Amino acid sequence: MYAILDIETTGGKYNEEGITEIAIYKFDGQKVVDQFITLVNPEKEIQPFVVKLTGINSSMLKNAPKFHEIAKRIIEITEDCTLVAHNANFDYRILKTEYDRLGYDYKRNTLCTVELSRKLIPDQSSYSLGKLCKSIGIPMSDRHRANGDALATVQLFKLILDKDSDKTIIESSTKLFDSKRTAEKLTKLLEPLPTEMGVYYLHKESGDIIFIGKGNNVKNEVNIQFLKTSKRSKKIQEKTLSISHEPTGNELITNLKYYLELEVNKPKYNLNSYKKLTTDHFNHPNMILVDKGRVLGEHSVILIEEDTVIGYAFTNLAFQENQIELLKTIITPIENKALAKTIVKNYLRSKKVLKIIRF
C-alpha cells in the first residue's frame, strides 16, 4: 500500500519551514482507496516567492487547521504505507520535522518518483514534475498546489509501476505478513485480493518473488493455488508471506506480462514457459494493437514496429494512442522481443483485439 503525497510549505530556513497545504492519496497499486486534502495554518509568515509560486497567502490560511489538529489523520492514512512523492526526501523531512515538534517519532519507508523516473523513463530533458508529465502526456492542473501535484504523481507512479517489469519496487516496498499458522495466514492474504483479471505475485519474507500466476479472477486463482496439496504447492504456501497483483484488462496483456515476467524474474516454483519461438512475420510490420484496459475508459496498447514488439502501455487519452513518438515515451519496453512476438502472434491467430492501427 502506498501513500502518494505532496506538501506545500512557507519556505524559509532549512527545518524551519511550515506546511501550508498537504494532499495525500492512499493507493493500493491500482486505485485510490482514500484521500486527505487540506490547507494548513503554519503559524508563521509565507515567503513572498512562495506566495507568487503557489498562490497561497496568509489570509487564506487564517481559518485552516493547525498541524497538530490534522496530525492524527495523517498518521492513520499513511499507516502501513510506503510514502511516495516527487522528491520524497523533501516531503518526508517536512513531515518528520512537524512531528518532531509534537514529540512524536514519525517513521515511514519512502519511494521517490524522481529517482524511479530517471531509471524507468530515461533520456528526458527534465525530471521536474511539470516538465516530465508534459513530455509523457500526463495532464496536470493546479501546478504547485498540493492536490494538483499529488494527483499528477499518482498518474506518474501508475506508469512507473507498469514499467517496473523486474518488480524491484514491489519487492522493496511489499508488506510482510507475520502469522504463526499457515491456514490463518493464507486466509488473511486472500481477503484483499480482487476478483478481476490479472497477474499475481507470491513473495517470500525478503520480498523476492517465488511464484507468478495469472487468470480471469486473481482471488479465485490464488485460492486454487492455496488449496493444492502437492509437495511443491505446500512449499509455496509455507513460504508465501505477501501477495501483490496487477490488473491487466484483457487476455493478451495478461499473457504478455505473465510469460515475459517469468523470463525476467525466474521464480523458483514456476514451471511454465514458452518452449518454441515463432519465426513468422506479422501481417503488417507496423501496428498498434488497441484493446480493453483495466478500467472503464482506458485502453491497452501494444506497439509493433518493423515486425518487432516494442512495448505496451495503458492509456485513456486517444492522442497518446495515435502519436507514435509520444507513445514511445510511455510504453513499458520489452527486452525479450522474440518471446513477445511469439505470444502476440499466437494470440492473434485465433482471437481479436478491439482495434488495429496500421502505420
Rank of each mutant, 00 (worst) to 15 (best):
I170N: 07
I170F: 05
S172Q: 09
S172C: 01
T174Q: 02
T174D: 00
F177I: 12
D178L: 11
D178W: 08
S179D: 13
K180N: 13
T182R: 11
A183H: 13
E184R: 14
E184F: 11
L186E: 02
K188T: 07
K188V: 10
L189K: 00
L189P: 00
E191I: 14
P192M: 06
L193Q: 09
K204V: 12
E205R: 14
E205T: 14
S206P: 06
S206F: 01
G207H: 10
I210S: 08
I212T: 12
I212S: 09
I212K: 10
G213C: 01
K214L: 08
G215C: 07
V218D: 04
K219M: 13
T229W: 01
S230K: 02
K231S: 15
K234I: 11
K235T: 14
Q237D: 08
S242P: 00
H245K: 10
H245F: 15
T248G: 02
N250P: 03
N250F: 03
L252Y: 02
I253K: 12
N255R: 12
K257L: 14
K257S: 07
Y259M: 10
L260I: 14
L262V: 14
L262K: 12
E263Q: 14
E263Y: 11
V264I: 15
N265P: 03
K266Y: 05
K266V: 02
K266G: 02
P267L: 06
Y269K: 03
N272H: 08
N272G: 01
Y274C: 08
Y274Q: 03
K276A: 08
K276M: 08
T279H: 11
F282N: 11
I288A: 09
L289I: 06
V290W: 00
D291C: 03
D291S: 11
G293P: 03
R294S: 04
V295I: 07
L296Y: 07
H299L: 02
S300G: 08
I302G: 08
L303G: 05
I304H: 10
E305G: 04
E305P: 05
E306Q: 14
